[in-house]
Amino acid sequence: MTAGQDKQIAPKVWASGLILGTLAAICTALVAFTYSVTVARIVANEQAYLEQSLAPLLAGIAYTNNLSESTLVIPPPHALPGNGPAIVYRVYAGDEPVAALFVVTARDGFSGPIKLLIGIDTSMSITSVRILEHQETPGLGDLIESSKSDWLTQLDKTSLQSPSRDSWSIKRDGGVFDQLTGASITPRAVIKAVKATLLYFEKHRDSVFAVIPPPQDAATE
């Protein structure tokens, strides 16, 4: 490239850069403004949604702490289902632990990971299970969702004692849990993940509750 061409091109490039820069500044301002207007509502919505989705798993359990503030993140590697970090919401009545809610990921669903919320009380039995995210087929695998069928309710009140450890699988595999008609891959993945979570909690119960979350009003004092 000759020096003459350079001279012709340079102003053009600078002008283009200036235009793009100005436009980027305008667009950033637009996004920043929208963010500042909406951020309070978004945070409130997310907390409300969290509490709302956790509440059904704690029916009949008296607890006093703020669940979003007692979160424990267990980094991989861990024995829980899933390769990523697992989240545990620890539930206390006063200082006394009463239950733990696990967010884990079953990686062997029919069409992708299935994210589960599993409630276990301190007597080691399941309070309830919810499906948080999945991509299973509508009408087949998605019947695991509690809004679509009551398949999940068979897990309520179960523990590693009832049914016994060896029968923690679907009927087709010699266990006691119902599968879904024409879809046993999805139920198999869910039951396996719940069992693994129970085993984990049995072994690591003390370390799950080890760090007492800061009292709720610590920030305001």
Partner: peptide
């Protein structure tokens, strides 16, 4: 930018 804005608005409302 506009899509980011609408996403924020949807998340909020």
């Amino acid at each position: 930018s506009l899509v980011t804005c609408i996403e924020l608005i949807f998340k909020a409302y």
